[in-house]
Structures are given as C-alpha cells and as structure tokens.
Design a protein around this nucleic acid. Structure first.
Lengths: 161, 161
DNA sequence: ATGATAATGATAATAAAAATCACTTTATAA
DNA sequence: TTATAAAGTGATTTTTATTATCATTATCAT
C-alpha cells in the first residue's frame, strides 16, 4: 500500500505534479476499494470521511489526472456515470469486466484473453492498438445458482448503482 | 431499405408498438447513416430536416425503444454522449469498434473474433453471456499513412465530436 | 362515434461533469 | 529569509445530455 503510493508519487513528480494531501487521500480510497468500480461521487463521499474539507471539484480533477497517468482507467458501463478503475501495476492491458444484468455486480477478468484477437486486428485492419475495452453483459454465477435453487434474486452482491 | 423498414415495422407490431411517422423518419435516418455513430442530438437534427415537426423527446424515446428491440445498440466511446449503432440484421453478436485517438474516426469490425474468448468466459467464470462490448483505441491506418508521408493529420474522416 | 390507450411535442427537472474564480499552498530565485 | 510566480484547492456556477411531466393529438377496438 505505502509502496504503491510511493510509486504513484514518483510518477506524479516525474511529470511535475505533486502528491498533495487531497490527492493522496483520493488515491488511498481507490486502493482501499480496488475491487469496486466507484463513480466520482462515490470517491468523493469516501474521501470526505477521512478528509472532510476536500471539494468535489478536486476529486474530479484528481481522477482526471490519474487517468492521464494511466493509474486509473475511466470506464462506463452504460448507466450514465463514469467509473474509475485502478489499473493493476505493471499490467500492459486493461482488464475485462463481467456485468451481471440481474444483480448489477461487476467482476473483473485479469487474464489477457485478447492476444490472438489483437494480432488479427493489428494485421487485418492495420490498426495500432493502444488500449481496449471489453465488457460482457450477462448472468453471473451467483444469479445462476439463485435461479437454480429457486431463491430470490437479492442484493447481497454490491449493486452497480 | 424498404424491406428493412418493413421488418422493423413487424418487429414493433409483434410487441404491440406502432411504426408512427416519427419513428419511421428516425429509422430512415439511422439506415441512411448506417456507417456513422450518431448521438441522439445528431439523429434529431437529421430527422428534423425531413420531419421538422418532430420533438427531441420523441427521438430519445424512439432510440430507447429501438434499443430495447435490439434494432440499435447504445454505445459510449468515452466522450459524454451515447451513440446509437444499427445492429446488422441477423447478427447474433454486436460488432466491434476501432476508435482512432488521432482523428476520432470509428471503424467497425463485423467479424465475430470473440468465439474462443466467450467459451473461456462462460466456462471458467460460469457467466452466461448475453451481450458484449469490444472497443479498441489506437491509431487507424489512415493516420498511420499520414504520419509515414509526413502529411498533416487532418479531418477528412468524420470526427467523433 | 366514443371511450381507452398510445404517442407526441414543448418544456421543466435532474444530474454528471466542466468551468470559473478568489484564495491558499508550495516552489523558486533574488 | 523574503517576494514572486506557479500550482492546487474549494465553493460555486455553468453547461449539457438525458429524463420526467403534462397537456394535446392520433389511433384502435368496440
């Protein structure tokens, strides 16, 4: 955690940005909620618990900055809000998502999966790939099992909204 | 074109919706701009040329309806607007996109490409896939060639914004 | 025709994100 | 150290895409 923050700090400095207390608090929230897919508003509320003086605008600016530095990826699952997803350190590709249309859960796939596909795209379409977004919409294993046992589709899994 | 509209009409009727003149005008605009990725506003302006009495709300409602019927797919390339993309007739999967970060052009890949990947996702994650979104961000062949010949990066390709 | 329902258009309401601006903090250089 | 520029912040306003509302109109079944 601390090492991770330290590396982000260096990354900021290398582009002559500073790791201000507000930025650090924001990064900490992202690290502590690595598995979630927080909106700017979500991040704002969480940061406010620890640094109540922070303003929403600063959170937006920080997230924008972290996005430029490729520390986070901005992603949109089709509801109207942008979500910010920490990029795995050293990951050369953005991970994939499974969005459940039943319960709203979002799971991540860290495996590459697209190696072959990207070769085809680069060769056949002469397209130099810099980034990708792959999201599957469907029914997650939890909702499957619920349906199998006749259990109701509840909200034990964190909802998207 | 006419046959296509006729089939959409039947599809609407099968769910007891009507193909009103406004809806037909909207569908025509989508068909006439099949290769583009129009926002609701874009569609509105184009429809207005032919049916000036139409209201923006109706366009939004129609696009929403066509999205439910899977005639169009709502997609978001990361700029703040939703875009509406005609689904190829008979296509059992949503096509993929190549977004150029130089010129903003958006090309489509109709080939499936994800067959193997989806098998893995369904098996390893026990996830029942209903839909997917795959977008690559990078440099398109046109911008490549421009850079090679030292030509400036212009706007002969339709911009995203 | 007539009553019920669906659809429309104008407009207002909502809400996410961006812009503005006065103020504060930090860094730099005399 | 001081002062002077630059960067960053917080409160607020503005912008803009989308949704909701509601009175009016068109359509359909009886």
């Amino acid at each position: 955690m601390e090492q991770r923050i330290d590396r982000i700090k260096k990354q900021l400095h290398s582009q002559s940005y500073k790791l201000t207390p507000q930025r650090e608090a924001t990064v900490r929230v992202l690290l502590e909620n690595e598995k979630d897919h927080l909106s700017a508003e979500d991040v704002y509320l969480l940061v406010k618990e620890k640094a109540p003086e922070i303003g929403l605008a600063t959170v937006y600016r920080t997230l924008e900055l972290l996005n430029e530095l490729e520390v986070v990826d901005k992603i949109n699952f089709g509801d109207g809000v942008s979500r910010y997803d920490l990029r795995k350190e050293g990951a050369d590709h953005f991970h994939h998502h499974l969005v459940c249309i039943e319960c709203g859960s979002v799971d991540e796939i860290q495996e590459d999966l697209l190696g072959e596909v990207e070769k085809i795209v680069e060769n056949d379409w002469r397209f130099k790939i810099k980034d990708h977004r792959l999201t599957f919409h469907g029914i997650c294993y939890r909702c499957h099992e619920k349906q199998d046992t006749g259990e109701e589709s509840g909200s034990e899994v964190k909802e998207l909204n």
